[in-house]
Amino acid sequence: MNYFLYFLLFFALVVVLSSFVTVRQGTIAVVTIFGKYQRQLRPGLNFKVPLIEVIHSRISIQNRSVELSFQAVTQDQANVYFKAMLLYSVLNHDEETIKNVAFKFVDSTNLMQALIRTIEGSIRAYVATQKQANVLAQRNEIVEHVKQQIDKVLESWGYHLQDLQLNDITFDEEIMRSMSRVVASNNLKAAAENEGQALLITKTKGAEADGNAIKIAAAAEREAAQLRGQGIALFRAEVAHGMTKAAQEMEQANLDISVILFTMWTESIKHFAENSQGNTIFLDGSTDAMNKTMKELMSVQMQKLSDQKG
Results as ranks from 00 to 15, higher is better:
residue 144 E to P: 02
residue 212 N to T: 08
residue 182 V to Y: 04
residue 221 E to R: 15
residue 167 N to M: 09
residue 185 S to A: 15
residue 163 D to A: 08
residue 237 A to T: 09
residue 183 V to W: 08
residue 235 F to R: 08
residue 160 H to L: 14
residue 148 Q to F: 09
residue 244 T to Q: 02
residue 162 Q to Y: 09
residue 163 D to G: 06
residue 181 R to A: 14
residue 161 L to W: 02
residue 193 E to D: 04
residue 159 Y to A: 01
residue 191 A to N: 03
residue 246 A to Q: 05
residue 166 L to K: 01
residue 194 N to I: 13
residue 174 E to L: 15
residue 195 E to V: 06
residue 179 M to I: 10
residue 147 K to N: 08
residue 244 T to M: 09
residue 208 E to A: 07
residue 169 I to Q: 00
residue 201 I to V: 12
residue 245 K to G: 03
residue 244 T to G: 12
residue 152 K to E: 13
residue 161 L to I: 02
residue 212 N to G: 09
residue 200 L to D: 10
residue 146 V to D: 03
residue 219 A to S: 11
residue 213 A to R: 09
residue 160 H to N: 12
residue 167 N to F: 05
residue 237 A to S: 12
residue 190 A to R: 08
residue 154 L to P: 02
residue 200 L to Y: 10
residue 174 E to A: 14
residue 162 Q to S: 11
residue 168 D to C: 03
residue 162 Q to N: 15
residue 217 A to L: 04
residue 205 K to G: 03
residue 189 K to N: 09
residue 162 Q to R: 11
residue 241 H to M: 12
residue 206 G to L: 15
residue 239 V to I: 13
residue 242 G to C: 12
residue 226 Q to V: 01
residue 237 A to M: 14
residue 219 A to T: 10
residue 147 K to C: 01
residue 179 M to W: 07
residue 209 A to C: 04
residue 232 I to G: 00
residue 191 A to L: 13
residue 189 K to L: 11
residue 177 R to W: 12
residue 167 N to K: 12
residue 177 R to I: 15
residue 181 R to I: 12
residue 183 V to L: 15
residue 167 N to H: 04
residue 200 L to C: 03
residue 245 K to E: 14
residue 223 E to G: 05
residue 245 K to T: 14
residue 177 R to P: 08
residue 196 G to H: 11
residue 153 V to C: 01
residue 157 W to C: 00
residue 149 Q to P: 03
residue 188 L to S: 07
residue 216 I to R: 11
residue 167 N to I: 07
residue 146 V to K: 01
residue 189 K to C: 06
residue 242 G to A: 12
residue 192 A to V: 04
residue 243 M to W: 05
residue 219 A to W: 05
residue 229 G to P: 00
residue 186 N to S: 10
residue 221 E to Y: 14
residue 191 A to M: 03
residue 154 L to V: 00
residue 175 I to H: 03
residue 224 A to C: 03
residue 219 A to K: 10
residue 149 Q to G: 06
residue 209 A to D: 05
